[in-house]
Design a binder for these strands. Sequence first.
DNA 1: CTGCTAATGCGACACTTGTCGATTATTTGG
DNA 2: CCAAATAATCGACAAGTGTCGCATTAGCAG
Lengths: 193, 193
Amino acid sequence: MAQVVQSATETTDPRVLRSRRMLMDSLLALLRKKEFEDISVQEIADEATLNRATFYLHYPDKSALLQAMTDLRFRELIERRGISFSDCDGALRAIALGVCDYLTETTGCPSQLAKMSLEGSIIPVVEGMFLEGLSHHAIAPGADPAMLAATAAWAIFGAARRWFQTRDRIPAEQMAAKIEAMVKPILLSAAPA
Amino acid sequence: MAQVVQSATETTDPRVLRSRRMLMDSLLALLRKKEFEDISVQEIADEATLNRATFYLHYPDKSALLQAMTDLRFRELIERRGISFSDCDGALRAIALGVCDYLTETTGCPSQLAKMSLEGSIIPVVEGMFLEGLSHHAIAPGADPAMLAATAAWAIFGAARRWFQTRDRIPAEQMAAKIEAMVKPILLSAAPA
DNA sequence: CTGCTAATGCGACACTTGTCGATTATTTGG
DNA sequence: CCAAATAATCGACAAGTGTCGCATTAGCAG
């Protein structure tokens, strides 16, 4: 997997921090005007007042930038909510709500959602949260935490995605409750005997 | 969504059938040698002994070809198994097994799996199968079949994907049983009171 | 303050992409 | 069997992509 491996990316150099932030801001601004596929690297660089070569110095392509930006923004959104892993029921609903909100927030105008690259970057984050949450619990001997986390994360995302694509959709809070009801059994299936 | 809308694609003209089959075969052959992103439309056309313009006559881009090919091959695999919607328990396990098998079958050599575009094309197919299966049942008033189908499909795929990425993985049949156990509650949550 | 290092700017490159109009080949219906 | 319809070929185009080498600048350590 080549997702979310930016561990070697940790820099303190204000130049690279500035460049990356400007690139993300630029992409976000452009996404409000046009579809992702219709945005060129040159446009992103121009909007950021950076050279196109500088872009490639930080991201292999525009999808990587989108992934990094999505990852960052979703983590911020969740952190802003202050998910507590002490009460898991609340965490599950909060994560579901976070995914719903994130979809509506980031994909403002167009049917930007169709792009898997945008969507997919949220799943590993959610997966990591479940993995962290599961580590605080005893689970049945045969169960695999990573498997449970992956299944739950993909299920939540699939549900949230479907909800978002629905016209005249119910409120996000209500949807989060439905998602919780559907997904909770997955996690409970690993409860110790 | 622009996925799996090929309804207008039904043709009997032997020329287009031949072209499309050759394009799919070419892509499949090339995928055994290199990554999807490293394959150009020109290469696919060359391998198929077709003109590049002919490619664009059938698919808007190479991702569309990949989607169409994945869709076709997965449907064939499932059909070969003869999924019966009369007993749903069997169908659920069979679909899960189909997804597992498909992952191992199509992504033979490289870590081709990382590509969402390849993976994602299976989900709508699975979703459609659940939708079909659910249409034969009475469900609770508040439940939405499309939502259930989407959630179950994504959950299955997420689980199968995780399984496939695991080294020294358990047999597909065993995994399918685990998936069934995890996913069944999602569908049961809509059982009529 | 002064280097050294590394990030950025710049221009160029070979290549890919998606599209177009014109021409040739194939299928199908009458 | 012929003629209209449509698919495939070909060459060309503007635009975008990813990568270079090299010059310039900004940050950081001594």
